[in-house]
Amino acid sequence: MMEMLHYPFMQRAFAAGLIIALLAAMSGSFIVLRRYSLLSETLAHVSLVGVSVGLLFGLSPLWMAVAASLIASWSIEYLRSVHGMYSDSILAIFLSGSLALAIVIVSISGSFNASLFSYLFGSILSVSNDDLMIMAFFGSIAMVLLTLFFKELYFIAFDEEVARTSGIRVTALNFMLVSIIALIIALSIRVVGTLLIGALMVIPPVAAIRFGMGFFKTTLLSIAIALVSVVIGLSTSFFFSLPSGAAIVLSLLVIFVIALAVNRR
């Protein structure tokens, strides 16, 4: 089994996958707690718009995905916090609108090429050393921010109004959280794909919650589940020639079913 690590592309894939799993599971714990899980799926579709624009105009798909996700996340949070719109309504609008826009852009380009397919479903072969360095750099910043403001983000997720009256800078931290989530999703598309990254951010926390522990322990368990799923998924992908993103998500689903069976209540 260890022979797959002799290949440089597998080394990069595992490194990238573990970085993304750590970040996705940790940030996902906050959005699951505040019943905001659809945010990850929405930003994944928005990042697809960025990828499509990048491929159409010969720009970097990764950076275009980052830009599109950040702009959308700020817009969503602005409409929710400033204009008081319902979260599910905003997310539904952005999700359907971004998907429609991506389809139009792909249609204009005149082809559904292999590059776009790899961004949709993930590809272990597409992770380069530059991609890995970018993931490590921005991932470190995201991890530091999530760790520094862990208690405040938990307080906000548990009760936003009480957190606001307690003097916590709720608006600023909310914008910081959605920015981190947007960045993680945009950086994840090489490994998991835009159509599957939402699962890596939502399923681990949901499975960990089944064990009924405190929030901190639940977050740690969520991270462990995500890391194990990435290892199993990428290994399965290598030996059976399966899409890496789909293999990771199926591994997550198996662990989730096990968590349901162990904790039926």
Rank of each mutant, 00 (worst) to 15 (best):
S98G: 11
I31A: 06
D88V: 07
L120S: 04
I184W: 01
I156D: 00
L148H: 07
S118A: 13
L145V: 08
S166D: 11
A68G: 02
G50I: 04
F149Q: 10
S222A: 15
S235K: 04
F57M: 11
S96W: 01
Y7H: 12
L125S: 12
V178I: 12
V46R: 01
V254K: 02
L23V: 01
G50L: 03
S188F: 01
D131M: 04
I168R: 06
L148V: 15
A136V: 04
I255E: 09
A24C: 09
M85H: 13
I105R: 06
S47V: 04
K217D: 13
A68F: 01
F149C: 11
V53F: 12
F158I: 11
A259G: 10
H45N: 09
I103H: 03
F211R: 10
T147C: 13
L200C: 01
L43K: 04
G214V: 14
L195S: 09
V144Q: 10
A224Y: 08
M201D: 03
E161M: 09
R190E: 04
I180E: 00
L253C: 05
V82W: 10
L38M: 14
N174Q: 12
L242A: 10
D130C: 00
V262M: 15
L250N: 02
R264H: 10
A157C: 08
L5Q: 09
P61R: 07
G58W: 02
I197T: 05
L91E: 02
L38G: 03
R35H: 12
R80W: 03
E161L: 12
L91Y: 04
P8R: 11
F158D: 14
R210L: 07
T236I: 13
V230C: 06
L116W: 02
S251C: 08
R35A: 12
V46Y: 01
L145N: 03
K151L: 11
R190D: 05
V46G: 07
M213Y: 13
R265P: 00
G84C: 08
F175S: 07
M2R: 11
M201A: 09
G245K: 05
S140H: 03
L120P: 01
A21Y: 05
A172K: 14
A142E: 00
S27Q: 13
L55D: 03
A261R: 15
L56C: 00
L220I: 12
G198R: 05
V144F: 15
G212D: 12
S81F: 10
T194Q: 05
N174G: 14
P204A: 04
Y119K: 08
A136E: 03
S111E: 14
G50W: 02
I185Y: 02
I209G: 07
A100C: 09
F211H: 14
I93E: 10
V202L: 11
P61S: 02
L62T: 14
R12K: 09
L183T: 04
A16E: 04
S235Y: 10
S98K: 03
